[in-house]
Amino acid sequence: MPQSALDTRASYLAQTHRKRLYSGVMLVLLVAMLCGGFMTADDRNAGGFWNGLPHVLDFPAEVLGEAAQKITLLPAHLVTFFPSLLETINIAAAATLAGAIMAIFLALLSTRGLARWPRLIPLFRRLSDIMRAIPEIVIALVLIFILGGGPVPAMIAIAFHTVGALGKLFSEVTENADLKPVEGLASVGAGWMQRMWLGIIPQVSPNFISYALLRFEINIRASAILGFVGAGGIGYDLRNAISWGQGKYDEAAAIFILLFLAIVAVDQLSGLLRNKLVGDTK
């Protein structure tokens, strides 16, 4: 082998070696951070990890045991709590719908080439960042204080976050939209709304709907959690059933089943729809 080729080979091997070393060091560092973090978290926890581990299944066993004893009551419980489940789903659906509609405007207003007021693009982008950064629970708790418990605070809170989250995803889609239809419409004197409605929306709606469906899956979970902190729906019933303790675990089991089935059903349905809309690109 000529000398230069040998040099190249040696330097390539050295480079690979160094790269692998770096990767190894980073992996070790990551594992060390994980272990350290785990130990810190374990220290701060009320019950230790190793003490608790054998008892992980105690609670599910208790719930299932009681539910099995009162298995005859289960269908009735499923019927009783179905309206709450419907409320949870409605909170998520209304919030997703309202959030998505607002997110469309936010996305269009923050896309270069499409914005109604190009100078305000940074403002709308910041707005979307901030709305995305606020966890639902913050707004929900504040609104519960003002509006009282019930589905409305949860709906507003989830919608607020959805606007930010979808706004960002939507604007990524609109940035790649073809501008020719917009120019064509502009040349015949169409206004901004008409340009967007007729030139952009038909191009991007499959992606928009697909993202909105994905959000809906996330929002159902969020809606259940917000119920748990006092915002109505099945989460609220779940908290009541659980804090009652033994004696109502059959109800808790019914709620677990309903929630699980709803989440899985929505995931499957939306996955199916999304595949139809945008093909198998995920």
Binding site: A41, R44, N45, G48, F49, D58, L238
Partner: peptide, 14 residues
């Protein structure tokens, strides 16, 4: 969260 907090108690680990 509910199941784990029964076993491990409240805290960041849960």
């Amino acid at each position: 969260t509910i199941i784990l907090s029964r076993a491990f108690g409240p805290g960041p680990l849960t």
